[in-house]
Simulated scan of single mutants.
Amino acid sequence: MAKPIVARWEWRTFGAGFDEPEERIRTYEQGNFKESGEVYVLSKNSDENVKVRDDLLDIKSLQEVNADGLEQWFPVLKAGFPISVEDLKKVFGYFKAPEPIFGRKEYTFDQFLNEIVRPNQNLRLVQVKKKRYIYVINGAVTEIAETEFDGVALRTICVEHEDPEVVMKTVRELGMEDLPNINYIQAMKKTVGMA
């Protein structure tokens, strides 16, 4: 039986100023390491998280921001390629951008990039590389990642869990509560000059 999908609360920061928290994280046993190449599609009109990884178009939607500034994200669509026009119409709802005229019933990955995304003035492709070092602290997934957005290198730390109190407890224990909470889309838009 498939596990139910649960919205997770996320705290993340990018940039510098977290050498000490990183040292604290590394005192825990590393649980996993993942390396990936992804394509994100940014929209001028929305900060929803739209990416293609492992041949799947994957959308996470921001549900809520709480009093601590934590963001609750929920997976709303995973679709393989070729992707149907029906699913693409849903995607454009999250882009908050006018739909193009669809000339096909379904689109391969390359057709999606070249015929749908690249010609659209509201959208921007970003090539993303990630090396993620994953730990579990207080039951919360905690990661240190080296990322590249169109070749620009940035470090990030993230803490996520379905219970926001667990996230904040972990953020405080690691000494990161004074650092800004910046999600992937905000960091990417700033890096590529789309903010």
Rank of each mutant, 00 (worst) to 15 (best):
N114A: 07
R53T: 14
L57K: 13
T170K: 07
G31H: 06
D163L: 05
F33V: 15
R124W: 14
R132D: 03
G17Q: 05
V141F: 00
K60D: 03
P98A: 15
K131W: 05
Y94A: 13
Q30F: 00
W73N: 07
V52Q: 15
I101F: 09
I185D: 09
E48I: 09
V128W: 01
V167H: 07
E99N: 07
R155F: 06
I137G: 00
V171H: 01
R12I: 01
E160M: 03
V50P: 15
F95M: 05
V166I: 02
L56P: 11
I144N: 02
R124Y: 15
S84K: 14
K78Q: 13
N120V: 12
A195N: 12
K78I: 09
D55Q: 08
T142H: 00
K78L: 15
V52E: 15
I116R: 03
V192C: 03
T27Y: 04
Q72C: 07
H161L: 05
L62T: 13
Y135D: 02
Q30E: 05
K190V: 03
M168N: 02
P4R: 01
N66D: 10
E160Q: 05
R26C: 01
M188P: 08
L77N: 08
A195H: 15
M188G: 08
Y135V: 02
N120Y: 07
P119Q: 05
A16E: 13
K51W: 11
L77I: 04
R118F: 04
D163M: 06
V192G: 12
G175I: 06
T108R: 10
A7N: 07
N32R: 01
E177I: 09
W11C: 01
V91G: 06
P4T: 13
F92R: 05
V52T: 15
V41Y: 11
E29T: 03
V50E: 15
E173R: 04
R132M: 01
F112L: 09
P100D: 09
M1Y: 06
L57V: 07
P100F: 09
K105H: 08
R155H: 12
A145P: 05
F109Q: 15
Y107H: 12
D19W: 04
E23C: 01
A145C: 12
V41S: 10
M1L: 07
P180N: 11
E162Q: 05
K189H: 11
P75L: 10
E48Y: 02
V76G: 10
T156Y: 00
Q127R: 07
V117R: 11
E86F: 01
R172I: 06
E148V: 11
L154G: 06
P98Y: 06
G31Q: 12
E106D: 06
Y94S: 04
I134G: 04
G93Y: 01
P4S: 14
G103S: 08
E106P: 03
K44T: 06
G80S: 14
V117P: 10
S36H: 10
V41Q: 08
A145F: 03
K130S: 11
I134L: 02
F149Q: 13
G193P: 09
S84N: 07
P100N: 12
W73C: 04
E35A: 08
S61N: 13
Q186R: 10
V152C: 02
V152D: 03
I5A: 06
E162A: 00
I182T: 02
V117M: 13
F95R: 08
N181Q: 03
F149K: 06
N45E: 14
G151I: 03
Q186G: 10
C158F: 00
K60T: 02
N122A: 03
T142R: 01
F112N: 12
S43D: 07
G15P: 04
N66S: 04
D58I: 13
